[in-house]
Design a protein around this nucleic acid. Structure first.
Lengths: 144, 144
DNA sequence: GTAAACCCTGGGGTCTGGTCCGGAGTCAAG
DNA sequence: CTTGACTCCGGACCAGACCCCAGGGTTTAC
């Protein structure tokens, strides 16, 4: 019924070092996220070593990327809570909608930056003497 | 030819306080940006007071928004340099293209977050027992 | 069974991006 | 011409997000 135990598949858990490596962050960062409440405290071995389930990698990568998008760790924590168990409550749904609005706002502004850069690149061998630059225009006008 | 000088239009310059107020940042922040090289040192009155041209507001707003999009001050400085005089050089154009790629990457990821949130909001009263949440999926898979 | 590589905790250091004094000079309105 | 608001500078301080180290136990590979 089972394969010989001598070639047993490695357990589907990761030490903190492997986890950090696969997620592309530092070990200290992982522990820091745990303290900050972004990563649930994993079970420990008798020795005290943390044993992470494989899908922690996914969560960590999410955090890393979201940070690059300008979310603070606190905001990221909120995003992650939306996806926890109890993802269907009315309150959670409302929170998700608020986040969505924020994200769409960011999207719109980022698109303006992109368009500005685009103009700059292919229509701009000097563009007027003064400050009518498309990049500046991109985010300076009121839209908040 | 000219209007009476007694009702002369106010000069088109701003004190640091007005500038900060109109741009929505603190006074200290303005000075900090100057030190950081993001805002060119403005001319001074005899008294030492800074006299900002009106369009500094635009530049400051750009900085503020770009920060919200996850750019560091250093990156913002680079973006701003792209739009300086000498916006047509081959080197500058190449730099702009690099920035553009980065921005498009961010856009794509932000869109994934948005889509994840969307799914979460209107298709998700509990979504499977474990970790197949659309938000996590949004940024965890490799796409870098 | 031992050395290299790994993990633990606690605490301090670092970098970024500000924010807040304090003492002194400046400006503008009445 | 005074008074209250503004500005100057330098330096201290702050929060967020890590990064590093020591001293000591644990695993793993040979």
């Amino acid at each position: 019924m089972s394969l010989p135990s001598s070639v047993a598949a490695p357990p589907a858990t990761l030490t903190i070092g492997r986890l950090a490596e696969r997620a592309g962050v530092g070990i200290d960062t992982v522990r820091y996220y745990e303290r900050a409440g972004l990563l649930p405290p994993p079970p420990r071995r008798a020795s005290g070593y943390r044993e992470y389930p494989a899908d922690s990698v996914r969560r960590l990568r999410f955090i890393r990327r979201a940070k690059e998008l300008g979310f603070t760790l606190t905001e990221i924590g909120e995003l992650l809570e939306l996806s926890g168990p109890r993802g269907g409550t009315a309150a959670v749904k409302k929170a998700a909608q608020a986040k969505l609005a924020l994200v769409e706002h960011k999207l719109a502004e980022l698109q303006r930056v992109r368009d500005g850069l685009g103009l700059l690149i292919d229509a701009c061998p000097g563009h007027g003497p003064l400050g009518d630059c498309p990049i500046l225009r991109a985010l300076s006008e009121d839209a908040s």
